[in-house]
């Protein structure tokens, strides 16, 4: 659009620009700076070139963490998206139930991330945790500290509990925008519940679903808190995702160079995958 007649508007976005510069651009530049240097502490740096990147791309540890991340994101999407749609479809559309459901759905989103971790850490313990204790009492051997499978299940359940609401709320917003006449017409046409979903609700939810999938993908790919608080990346390396690995490298071993290279690669991967997702889904939309 050609609305360049008022340059004062720039002053209004200036605070945001400054904020973004301090919170994102400058740290990112620091990271770029670290990624091509080596240090032994005392603020002495040596030029390292692409050494850290090469090392990273040849490291098994990195690729294993990456595969774990991809599997994790896939499972999260496969559970949260259908579950979110299902819950949204079954939420009331009018009456007193609407605000009740909305508040219930918003609750997990309002809990701070480290609290979520602590809650589940305690909840899942098999000695004093409500959940862990009773699962064991049922005769199922559950211990997220020792069994990699149990650790995975715990982290996934946590994420589902924490974030399915987001998908629900987005889908619900799409659903309530469908005029009543569509449902009435479908009844008259003798459409089954499935046909109503497939030909009315799904097409109308498509845009918000795109956003939901994108957000959930990016977020689950960056998973950090849950494994950090609950499993600390273990048992073994079974829940060591890229972010955990990164922190271990950077803060645990104080390898700033390799860690910086890793963050950059990590950042590019997320950017790339998000872009692929977005393009595929919007193209699909445009074709139809």
């Amino acid at each position: 659009m050609d609305k360049t007649w008022n340059n004062k508007a720039w002053f209004l976005v200036l605070p945001v620009l400054v904020l973004v510069a301090f919170s994102a651009v400058i740290p990112l530049m620091t990271v770029v700076n670290y990624s091509v240097q080596d240090t032994f502490g005392n603020n002495v740096f040596f030029w390292a070139g692409t050494e850290w990147f090469e090392e990273l791309l040849h490291s098994n540890r990195f690729w294993e963490a990456m595969v774990r991340n991809l599997i994790f994101s896939f499972i999260i999407l496969a559970i949260e998206v259908p579950l979110g749609i299902f819950i949204a479809l079954n939420m009331p559309k009018k009456g007193w139930g609407v605000p009740v459901c909305l508040v219930l759905m918003a609750l997990p989103l309002l809990v701070p991330w480290n609290v979520v971790g602590t809650i589940w850490q305690v909840f899942g313990r098999n000695d004093i945790g409500l959940l862990g204790y009773y699962i064991n009492a049922l005769g199922i051997d559950y211990n997220y500290v020792q069994d990699p499978f149990d650790a995975w299940v715990t982290v996934i359940v946590m994420d589902v509990w924490h974030w399915t609401s987001l998908v629900v709320l987005l889908c619900y917003a799409g659903l309530v925008s469908i005029p009543d006449a569509f449902y009435q017409a479908a009844k008259i046409d003798g459409a089954s519940r499935w046909a109503v979903f497939r030909y009315i609700q799904l097409p109308k939810m498509q845009r918000v679903l795109l956003i939901a999938v994108l957000l959930r993908f990016m977020d689950s790919f960056m998973i950090y808190t849950e494994p950090f608080v609950v499993t600390g990346g273990g048992p073994g390396n079974s829940t060591t995702f890229l972010s955990i690995d990164l922190v271990k490298t950077a803060l645990g071993q104080f390898d700033l160079g390799p860690a910086a290279a890793m963050s950059l690669v990590y950042f590019l991967i997320i950017l790339l995958l998000s872009w692929v997702f977005y393009t595929v889904m919007t193209n699909y939309d445009a074709e139809r």
């Binding site: 006449a181 569509f182 009435q184 017409a185 009844k187 008259i188 003798g190 030909y199 009315i200 097409p203």
Partner: peptide, 20 residues
Amino acid sequence: STQERNIAQVFQFPVIYDTM
């Protein structure tokens, strides 16, 4: 129910299945 009555209705704003 509406289905069992076998009627047809045209609404104020066009209702079409727009993916079909």
